[in-house]
Every structure is written in structure tokens, then in C-alpha cells.
């Protein structure tokens, strides 16, 4: 059976990509990697993928106004709940950034003055990298639907895993707790939460933990930048203890980690305190033992 693991955090910038990349370079070719942070994807920077296959990702239907047919009756403007249409001087002015692509305007127009066009929202890539197969995507700036794109990306990754007989998929997740995160974690086997010892970090990781629990997905924690605030680390440990959440590892803040990223290397590949590398291995061992306890 193919197992899917996702790395999430709630709060952005806690180190999801850095840690996912470290796992990638540790696991080399043992898994399929996915960057599900489709509106701010970063893994490609270090993965330096060779794109083997591309597919376009179709977004929703957007309205196209035909000025010759428009009588400026205003029905579309009145019924648009997103303030995307304004009739100005007898002409509809359309604001694509406000449009939710609900279709009300073109359905309601009595004069067929609104046609539709299918928007291309992004691209999905199947790539090869020095760490093995990599599925990633770009969502064109400002486009909606990142949840749907994430779902599509997961299907693509599963197909790759099937074809190449890999039984593990590791997903670098998006920040937040909304649509893209829900699409990332539904039906996976394990969620890894990366938390930094700050009040914001703790507040946000609790939300993702609760979300993961709601979907019945086992959850484990990694504390990143662990030396920034020892009190907060204690709080996180107490929380993990109380909720029975395995704490897989602690990674201290290090300028070398930033240097690795700048040089497009993972922290396993870069000249870094061996203790940090050991911690990554410990995290991976922890993941493995959780999976085996689940019967995988």
C-alpha cells in the first residue's frame, strides 16, 4: 500500500520545506516527493528538477462580456455577490480579481451578452530530481482553486508511485488550515507538524493538530528553531505529552541551515553540525516506527 505523509505547520516559515527537503535527501529514490504549497512553491529551488511531463490545470469558467449584445440592464451587477461587475456609462466593467467564477452572471443574462472561457489556472509537473521523482505545480498568480490543484497533484503523485513501485509519498504542505491544507491531509496516513517555539507557532500548530484529529489522521511533531525560546519548548513538550503526540525531534536555529538553502543544498548535503543531521535521521526513524505501529 502507498503511504502518504504530509508536513504542515499552520504558521508559515517554520521550516516545512527545509525539513521535507532534508528527508528527501536522506531517503533518495525511496519515495515520491510532492510540493503541495502550490501558490508559493519552494521545494523546486533545492530539488532543481528536470521536468519530464507537464499538464495544464484547468480552472473555473470565467465570464467574457460581449459589449455589442449588452443592454446595460444591470441584472448581472445586481446578482453578483462578489462586486465583480459594475455598469459604468452603459458598459459592464468586469474585475477578474473579485470574480468567484460562480456563473451567476452568464446564466442570468437575458441577452446572451456574457460568454464563458475556461481559465488555465496552473501547471502540474512530473519531474526527476537528485532525490528521485518529484511532483510539483505552479498556480498562476492570484488564481483560485489551490485545493483542487493539490488534490490533482496527489493523484499524479500516486500514479508515479504506482508506476515506479514506490510505497511512500512525502508531501510538503501549505500553511494555514483552510482548503489547500484540507486537500493535502484528507486520507493520508500521517501528518508531521513543524512548530517553532513562539506563541504564534504554538497557537497555529494546535489548530492543525485539531484539524488532523478531525480527519482521524495520526499526528507527530518536530520542533524547529528550538533554541529561540526554551520556555516555549517546554510548553510544546507539555502539550505533546498531554495529547499523546510523538515528538520526533528538535532542530536548533543555525545560520548554516539558511546557508544551505542559499546554496541550494539540503541540510543533509551541507556542512552542518552533525548533531542536526542526526536529528533528521532520528525524525525519519520516528516516522518509520509510527508507520510500522500502524501496521504499514
Amino acid at each position: 500500500m502507498i503511504k502518504e505523509i504530509a508536513v504542515v505547520s499552520g504558521k508559515g516559515g517554520t521550516g516545512k520545506s527545509t525539513i521535507t527537503l532534508a528527508l528527501a535527501s536522506l531517503l533518495k529514490n525511496e519515495a515520491v516527493f510532492v510540493d503541495a504549497d502550490v501558490d508559493a512553491p519552494d521545494m523546486y529551488v533545492v530539488m532543481e528538477p528536470h521536468i519530464k511531463k507537464k499538464e495544464t490545470f484547468e480552472g473555473p469558467l470565467f465570464p467574457v462580456f460581449i459589449p455589442e449584445k449588452c443592454t446595460a440592464c444591470g441584472l448581472c451587477e445586481q446578482n453578483c455577490r462578489f462586486d465583480a461587475i459594475k455598469i459604468v456609462d452603459g458598459q459592464p466593467i468586469f474585475n477578474e480579481f473579485k470574480c468567484d467564477a460562480c456563473g451567476v452572471c452568464w446564466r442570468i443574462c437575458p441577452f446572451d451578452a456574457i460568454e464563458t472561457k475556461r481559465d488555465i489556472s496552473g501547471e502540474i509537473y512530473i519531474s526527476e530530481s537528485r532525490f528521485g521523482p518529484f511532483a510539483h505545480a505552479t498556480l498562476f498568480p492570484g488564481r483560485e482553486n489551490s485545493g483542487k490543484l493539490v488534490s490533482r497533484l496527489r493523484i499524479v503523485a500516486k500514479t508515479i508511485a504506482n508506476d515506479l513501485k514506490k510505497d511512500l509519498i512525502i508531501i510538503d504542505g501549505p500553511p494555514g488550515v483552510g482548503c489547500p491544507v484540507i486537500s493535502t491531509i484528507t486520507g493520508i496516513q500521517l501528518t508531521i507538524g513543524i512548530v517553532e517555539p513562539t506563541l504564534s507557532g504554538i497557537h497555529d500548530i494546535i489548530r492543525v493538530f485539531e484539524l488532523s484529529k478531525y480527519f482521524n489522521i495520526p499526528f507527530a511533531l518536530v520542533i524547529n528553531k528550538s533554541d529561540i525560546n526554551p520556555d516555549m519548548v517546554n510548553k510544546i513538550e507539555a502539550f505533546a505529552n498531554e495529547k499523546n503526540i510523538p515528538l520526533l525531534g528538535k532542530i536548533p536555529f543555525s545560520r548554516n541551515i539558511v546557508e544551505a538553502v542559499v546554496n541550494k543544498k539540503t541540510i543533509i548535503e551541507w556542512d552542518i553540525d552533525p548533531h542536526i543531521k542526526e536529528e533528521i535521521k532520528k525524525i525519519w526513524n520516528g516516522i518509520q516506527s509510527m508507520l510500522s505501529q500502524m501496521g504499514f
Binding site: 501558490d39 473579485k98 498568480p141 492570484g142 489551490s146 483552510g178
Partner: peptide
């Protein structure tokens, strides 16, 4: 992010401050 929630948040503002860090 850069998708819908970001777009809605910055729309109709006079100025957007984008905060970044000097990493790739």
C-alpha cells in the same frame, strides 16, 4: 500565499508592503 485570499486582502489598498527574506 499568492492565491485568492491574498488577492482579496490586498485589493483596494493604496499600498502593499511585501515582506521577504534574502533566501531563494
Amino acid at each position: 500565499g499568492t492565491s485568492c485570499p491574498f488577492v482579496q486582502s490586498i485589493s483596494d489598498t493604496d499600498f502593499v508592503i511585501l515582506v521577504t527574506e534574502p533566501t531563494p
